[in-house]
């Protein structure tokens, strides 16, 4: 791995760290608001993780839409394996777009927390909420993704 591709990996991972931090902040503040509004409830719908996942789908589709719209190539292996990476401008552009999509949005969204929450809710008797959470997460992700793809085509 060349120095350049190592730098690129660090940039992508830093964007990932930012995505995870934003997800944590959303989760903490949403949950705190839910508990404040209705204390002592037995189950809380995980609106925080739901929002982080939906937002991530929207943003990622938007970024991929922008890349497709402007003809930027987003190939991770080319970015991280390239020795000289050719044109520095297109290298930087695809680095930024990949950092925002795979790095930031990839970390902003989460599958593990979603599935473990679904399991935990259904095990503790809130099976309807568990199924609703799963279904609503998927539906909202697909809708947000479609919207995200659509918006760049308007310009």
């Amino acid at each position: 791995m060349s120095f350049l591709s190592l730098t690129a990996l660090v940039v992508l991972a830093l964007a990932g760290a930012a995505g995870a931090m934003l997800r944590y902040l959303i989760d903490v503040s949403f949950t705190a608001a839910q508990v404040r509004q209705a204390p002592r409830r037995k189950h809380y719908f995980p609106w925080g993780i739901f929002s982080a996942n939906t937002l991530a789908c929207f943003l990622m589709a938007g970024i991929l839409g922008v890349a497709a719209h402007t003809g930027v190539q987003l190939q991770l292996d080319r970015l991280l394996n390239a020795q000289g990476a050719g044109d520095p401008l297109s290298f930087s552009v695809s680095l930024v777009l990949l950092a925002l999509s795979i790095g930031f949005c990839g970390s902003l969204s989460t599958m593990s927390t979603l599935m473990v929450s679904v399991l935990a809710l259904s095990r503790s008797g809130a099976r309807t909420m568990a199924l609703a959470y799963l279904g609503v997460s998927l539906a909202a992700g697909l809708a947000a993704g479609s919207l995200g793809y659509y918006i760049p085509t308007l310009f």
Partner: peptide, 20 residues
């Protein structure tokens, strides 16, 4: 470990983008 590492390791958006 949970929110940070495993949350960022797994991803929902890439899955949804593929589905679309």
């Amino acid at each position: 470990i949970g929110t940070g590492f495993l949350g960022a390791f797994t991803t929902f958006s890439t899955l949804v983008i593929f589905l679309l």
